[in-house]
Design a protein around this nucleic acid. Sequence first.
DNA 1: TTGGGCGGTATACATTTGTCTACTCGTCAT
DNA 2: ATGACGAGTAGACAAATGTATACCGCCCAA
Lengths: 211, 211
Amino acid sequence: MGTLAGGKLKLVQAALRLITETRSLTSLGLRELAREAGLNPNTFYRHFRNLDEFGLQVLGYIAEDMKAGVRQLRQMADSSEQASHDTVTFVYHYFLANPAATTVAVRELHGPSPVLRQALEAQLNASAREMAEDILERGLVPGVEATVVHEISHMTIRYILFRALDFIEKPEQRERIQGETERFINRQFRGALIESLDIRQIPALKKAAGP
Amino acid sequence: MGTLAGGKLKLVQAALRLITETRSLTSLGLRELAREAGLNPNTFYRHFRNLDEFGLQVLGYIAEDMKAGVRQLRQMADSSEQASHDTVTFVYHYFLANPAATTVAVRELHGPSPVLRQALEAQLNASAREMAEDILERGLVPGVEATVVHEISHMTIRYILFRALDFIEKPEQRERIQGETERFINRQFRGALIESLDIRQIPALKKAAGP
DNA sequence: TTGGGCGGTATACATTTGTCTACTCGTCAT
DNA sequence: ATGACGAGTAGACAAATGTATACCGCCCAA
């Protein structure tokens, strides 16, 4: 993948390994990294100017990886008609298969480094847009406006990522988390559907609709 | 406010100050802390055994603070009938007034320390339960089962916290974030309302309901 | 054959960190 | 008046960190 090879690759992999256990990307030390990679500390400087640049490159590495996952999802979705159940299943399986990348993303999305935060934000927005366009193209929610679909996709992507850590770390809760996520998505779209209708057509919903 | 006074208070305040700027609670150093507090590094040991214990105490301090906020919200809600709009407005204003506590909560909820994560999780669950019971007692969503109300409250609390950092740091987006949050909540409950009904009663929704 | 990058190593250094022991000083109970 | 004690300080120490300089071997181009 990309131009990652030799010592550079070893360092990135070491970072992912460390992060999955207990650490956060921004808190990694140069020597700690080299130690885990089985390299001399100074080798780090052959590949990265400093730790900030290293963090950004790791993030790029992860982004590339995730994009591949999303592309794969898209192919699946085109091959057969997918309900939210299958999509959620796929995404969580992806998280499970890439725990390091997932953990980094979750940690740094709200982490202390503005640079990394912004980079991740952009990546998530891209994924959300892709998801929304997919939904729109396939006409999965006919009654809902495009802007609303985008908004819900935006929320959904974040919600899923939000729960990814628990999903990875607590195997006994996986079924429950997945179920909740599906209900989350369904409720969002169904709720949006109601918004777009004239409430008076549906007597049973009147009192819950508010002004 | 608890038994916080003197040097102990100074250290906690120093931590909050540092965290709001760039750092994360788990990454704070003992000496850095004492420096910011204007104290000798060793004074730290007069109040805390080590940095882990310090983190927990800070978290407790914050939890106490947040509970006060929730209590205040409850009083408001009892005094006049509140829609989701007012509630969301209040919560975000609380975040704005307590940026340090909010930042800590968001950062450590997915941070590297399992102990802090678990403590925060418990705190959030308590708030979610409180919110759900409030909604149920006041009969705000008559058609929805209690367990579903709890589930949605759980999600809502997390969603709001999830967006709190952006709300604090990006003033120009505050209006948008608040609007999205309100729509989020409304869609969840309206979507849940549909779930609980027999779909066939509502022809317009048939195709979106799935099997 | 030579010479220069490139990736990797060794040594060294100043700085910072967590922690230990020992000292000081005010307050309060006896 | 004495002594214990809580809160703060001072100094020291080993360990770890980021970085700089210099050295080595390999491969490829000239």
